[in-house]
């Protein structure tokens, strides 16, 4: 199977899963902004998803994407370290055009996964999981599992969480600004003209998505769920 046993194939797996995850983040950010406008409206979205079969199926699909992306990141990183050889340069001078993120995608990815685990513990565990096993009530507080707005307010009432989430968003921003154009490059959808275009589109797109996430975290920290 060329997708797993060729270098370009393995990179195609990274690109396709990466783009799919960016699309998911877009959906997630749009959903989150609702919480900033109206808490009840956000809870309606939460109820619509809840632990319904389609939401569970989508969650499993997402988990598969994350696992493929992460497992291949490990495989590629190990192969690349081996290809580099055991002898390191005594002096290295990084060229100006080499972005920092592009050389640290694995480290950034690890930060993203750690943040993801915390995020799943804060929300998924108290929402979808709680609805499945805890009779529709969150574990962390006496609120219904679909009361997402209350859980956001509760989480970000602790500013330490806000800081951790913001660091997480910054790591994700770096990861995605490189990942976006890199995915199109790997799929071969790039040339001298489109190179700058993909970079500009990617940076703008990713910045907007990450600002939407950050707005909810900051908004709920400052105003404790104004609209909720």
């Amino acid at each position: 199977m060329w997708l797993t046993n060729s270098s370009i194939g393995r990179k195609v797996l990274m690109s396709v899963t990466g783009i799919a995850l960016i699309l998911f983040l877009t959906f997630h950010a749009c959903m989150n902004v609702v919480a900033l406008i109206d808490g009840d409206a956000y809870n309606t979205v939460c109820s619509a998803l809840g632990a319904n079969w389609y939401a569970v199926v989508a969650t499993v699909a997402l988990a598969v994407l994350v696992v493929i992306h992460f497992v291949y990141a490990i495989i590629l990183t190990l192969q690349n370290r081996k290809a580099r050889g055991s002898n390191r340069y005594a002096v290295t001078d990084k060229p100006a055009k080499v972005e920092w993120a592009s050389q640290n995608m694995f480290v950034l990815g690890v930060i993203v996964v750690l943040g993801l685990l915390l995020h799943l513990w804060n929300f998924w565990f108290n929402m979808m999981f709680a609805e499945m096993v805890n009779g529709g009530y969150a574990f962390v507080a006496d609120v219904p599992a679909h009361d997402g707005a209350a859980l956001i307010a509760l989480t970000f009432s602790n500013p330490i969480y806000t800081v951790i989430y913001l660091v997480w968003f910054v790591a994700l921003w770096f990861h995605l600004t490189h990942g976006f154009w890199s995915a199109f490059q790997t799929l071969g959808l790039n040339n001298k003209v489109w190179f700058c275009r993909w970079k500009a589109i990617g940076t703008a797109y990713v910045t907007i998505v990450m600002l939407l996430f950050a707005a909810v975290a900051i908004g709920y920290t400052c105003c404790g769920g104004i609209a909720a």
Partner: peptide, 8 residues
């Protein structure tokens, strides 16, 4: 190795 588009 596998290309990761660092452009070095």
């Amino acid at each position: 190795g596998n290309c990761t588009n660092t452009r070095a």
